[in-house]
Structure formats: structure tokens, C-alpha cells
Lab assay of single mutants.
Amino acid sequence: DFYKILGVPRSASIKDIKKAYRKLALQLHPDRNPDDPQAQEKFQDLGAAYEVLSDSEKRKQYD
């Protein structure tokens, strides 16, 4: 669930989604977690979630 990945409720605004994405991107970035083999995958999932939820048309289709 993309909302769960970003840690935001379904009613979150685009601004809230962007804020959550930036915070998590810093935490999950593979360069900051060189010892975590799943860091790259988590970071890619985060990017996919943000791409869908930050675009109003894609978000409507997802919901």
C-alpha cells in the first residue's frame, strides 16, 4: 500500500505526501544505509509510491 509506505493517511494532501517523501528519502537512501542490502529496494518502493500519490490523476486511479 503506497500510503503505508509513505506513512500518510488516505486523506493526506499533496503537501503532506511531499513532506513525508522527503523525510523518508533521506532516511532510506542507499548511500546512507550501505550495510542494508534491501535499502535500494525500499528506496525504489518509496519513489514509486511518491510518483503515484503526488500526481492527482494517478492517485485517483490508485484509489
Rank of each mutant, 00 (worst) to 15 (best):
R22Y: 10
Y50H: 07
S56C: 13
Y50D: 03
Q61V: 14
K23S: 15
L24F: 06
L26Y: 12
P30F: 02
I5H: 06
P34L: 12
V8D: 02
R32V: 14
R32W: 04
K15S: 11
A20S: 12
Q38D: 15
I5Q: 07
K58Q: 07
I5E: 07
K42G: 04
P37I: 07
P30Q: 05
D36V: 06
L6M: 15
K60H: 15
R59C: 00
N33P: 03
K60S: 15
Y50F: 10
S56H: 10
Y21G: 03
P34H: 11
A20W: 00
Y62V: 02
Y3K: 03
L28N: 09
S54P: 05
R59D: 00
K23T: 13
D35V: 08
P34Y: 10
A49Q: 00
H29E: 13
R22K: 14
D36E: 06
L46Y: 02
D36I: 06
K15Y: 12
R59T: 02
E57M: 08
H29P: 01
L53D: 01
Q38G: 14
K60N: 10
Q61G: 11
D36P: 01
D45I: 04
Y21F: 07
E51F: 09
P37T: 11
I17M: 02
P34D: 09
A25H: 07
Q44G: 09
K15Q: 13
Q61D: 08
L53V: 03
Q27A: 14
A25E: 14
V8P: 01
L53N: 00
K23Q: 05
A39Q: 05
K58E: 05
K18C: 08
Q61L: 11
K19C: 15
A20P: 01
F43M: 08
I14G: 14
L46R: 00
A25D: 04
S13C: 09
N33W: 10
S13H: 09
E41P: 05
F2A: 06
V52K: 02
Y21A: 03
K4T: 15
D31L: 09
A39T: 04
L46C: 05
D35M: 13
D36K: 05
F43E: 02
I14W: 06
A49W: 00
R10E: 14
L24C: 09
Q61I: 14
E51M: 05
L28V: 10
S13D: 15
D45L: 13
